[in-house]
Design a protein around this nucleic acid. Structure first.
Lengths: 225, 225, 225, 225
DNA sequence: GATGAATGAGGCTTCATTCAT
DNA sequence: TATGAATGAAGCCTCATTCAT
């Protein structure tokens, strides 16, 4: 392994011609497919070029390294997920509704990108650069949750004992890790029930009394074990 | 040569003499150190042998591959953690006390092995074998928690809406991932407060009214960001 | 990494450009030279690349292993030998003439490739694949001889006691092994006399009365110890 | 590979004690078994020691190298074969009977040691030392045959055209190689018929009229092809 | 831009042989 | 003698990256 830390954030040259742009984007697509199929470590440049049906050397015309193209893929994934979770329908303004919507959106977005998420998780364990990126993303939504919780707490909706920072961090970990455990590790679950239970737990943890209409009882998936 | 045939392929054996045992354990220790220092991928056999101050080939006298020593290290870590969390003092028989004790033990054990835990997490992302091991371990404690929650639910201590399986899984993820985020990723936190808040969230999520004596208010760590 | 999965594993391909073709054939030539100089076992990839004046890794661009280039060399040798023995002038249609021509051609072809033949013999002792190839070649010419002998036998030219299969096999062995003993092991002989005597023995064994004009007496080589 | 040429012909020290002798001979026996099972190249010292149930280092107490122990095995094989072929019953004093007896004995001896003979053939292709040994043995029996043929020729029993040296060499090759082809390569044959046909061919080649009683017709083995 | 050949360092593994006990 | 641990050179193969055309 090696994680050069000084490479520019964007490839050698951005393509000028339309043909160049097409080639570059074929490479990104191919890279994503290969990463999804074989993981980061077992994917080599040859594989990517081959799948993109592009000459080997072409890769280095647009990217300086495997890590760089991976960065591109990650950015793409992030956009995709943002779009997906943004598409989650609004459910109401009360905390429970917001939490439910966030959880549903998160799981849905995760599901759509589960395969590549596994790889991102993998790379984050050895690439300082990607780890940093992920940490930044994490901090962003933790601080948003923290702010919301703090607000709710000030409003008396959230239990006074709750520390907004720890709560945001820990409950964020709960949702994020559950998605990984279910979608990536393949532990048994049923998505609708999962969202509902996560929301129930999340609200309960904060001391929020859900305004939800009586939800259907969760069905423990039978296939597990 | 060309056809190894269906060779017996007798791999490395456990050392017979005291000297051999010393050497082998020097290798395991060295391997752990190197893994902790450089991660799994950036550690090579040469490094391990060098640090153990034995000849290169010695490694293969006792292990067949890097993955194999790593397995040994993991087993060692597991034992170490079990010992640590078992040493956590008893706090009471009620659910909240048990939960608090489990969380405290878990975090403490994690803290002691944080560096190698990062590496284990890394390897689990690409080694099916280790991933399997981890999944087994996870299932074990999830099912234990599930059983406890189910019992409490039957006793009316836990909210009727809670599904024991999802709760065990998600709350387990919360604690486990929080430990990773704090100890490995280095996000700011203070252990005592963390235990307390995790417990609070865990209990709240289940709808348990803590029997805890009035706890000191959690201090949001200032150093965070 | 640990699981190459059921990878497509696209091996080396034939070079597309003229330059690549040149390099590839430099490698084959170099391989043959090295095999001839040091034998199969004592030739390593480094040697081949060095002699071809290309980078080490280049070898693996065109071949997967030493065994593979060797196969190429063997094919080349086979072609060369076929060409040589086909060039042997016609001597007549009678059995003795045909036998004489075949023997002369065989020895001549063997002589031209004696050094590499020694290596082929070597590899055939431990490479099942090459052994198979050789066995096939052997079966081919044994069955051709067998057919001829059977024909001659039917025509009353060959003794009735002779079994065509055994005769073809054993006399083939005689010629083949003699070539090895003389050209490879360096036992003393003189080629013209050798051809003549082999033919005499071959014909006599079959009970064929040679139509040959009175041949000059064979000269036992004096240099033999 | 490496074939040190200056090693002493006999191991470091010949064992003095009875126990030492037993150990040494266990090693030779084990070596032979391993060589037979895996060939020379794929047999390592560890295998030999393990099979002999003797400590690894013990090997070097009695032998300086793998090649040396192999030499020992070869000597043993040679003795065994000599014994076997000497046991072949006498058939008469005439050339045909002597030839028949020699061929029968040769094939029988070869059959008994076929597996190790394959290995000896293998090693002879890369070990100058063993090649030398074999060449000596070959020269010995070629010159014996040559002498016999010369005698028969002087007696007018063998055709005047035959050159005793070439005849001895070529017919020796025929028998020797046939044994290899049949016993080692596994080409189809039936031993009794093979001996008979070899003898027929051998005698015919020399122009000897066999005195043999009318032999049963050879049966071409049906399993071939 | 495009192509694919060329480079060579780096890591893994084996195993004959030597040595300490 | 016996034991088995220790040594380290040697070879194999991969692949990220650079270059010539």
């Amino acid at each position: 392994m090696s994680t050069p830390s000084e490479a520019p954030a964007i490839g050698p040259t951005l393509p000028v011609t339309a043909r160049g742009q097409r080639t570059r984007s074929k490479l990104v697509k191919a890279a994503r497919s290969e990463f999804e199929r074989n993981g980061y470590l077992d994917t080599n440049i040859q594989d990517i070029a081959r799948r993109a049906k592009v000459a080997y050397g072409m890769f280095y015309t647009y990217f300086t390294s495997k890590e760089e193209v991976f960065g591109e893929v990650v950015a793409e994934v992030r956009d995709q997920q943002r779009t997906i979770s943004a598409a989650e329908p609004w459910r109401g303004d009360d905390p429970a509704s917001r939490i439910a919507r966030a959880n549903a959106g998160y799981l849905r977005a995760y599901r759509e990108c589960a395969t590549i998420m596994a790889v991102i998780e993998q790379v984050a364990t050895f690439s300082p650069r990607l780890a940093e990126t992920r940490r930044d993303a994490r901090r962003y939504w933790v601080s948003r949750s923290e702010a919301a919780i703090a607000r709710w707490k000030a409003d008396g909706i959230v239990s006074a004992d709750v520390d907004p920072y720890y709560a945001a961090s820990a409950l964020g970990s709960m949702v994020d890790r559950s998605a990984y455990v279910w979608f990536v590790l393949g532990e048994p679950f049923e998505e609708r029930a999962a969202v509902e239970q996560l929301t129930l737990l999340y609200c309960g943890a904060l001391g929020i009394t859900p305004v939800l209409a009586a939800p259907p009882r969760a069905q423990t998936p039978r296939s597990r074990r």
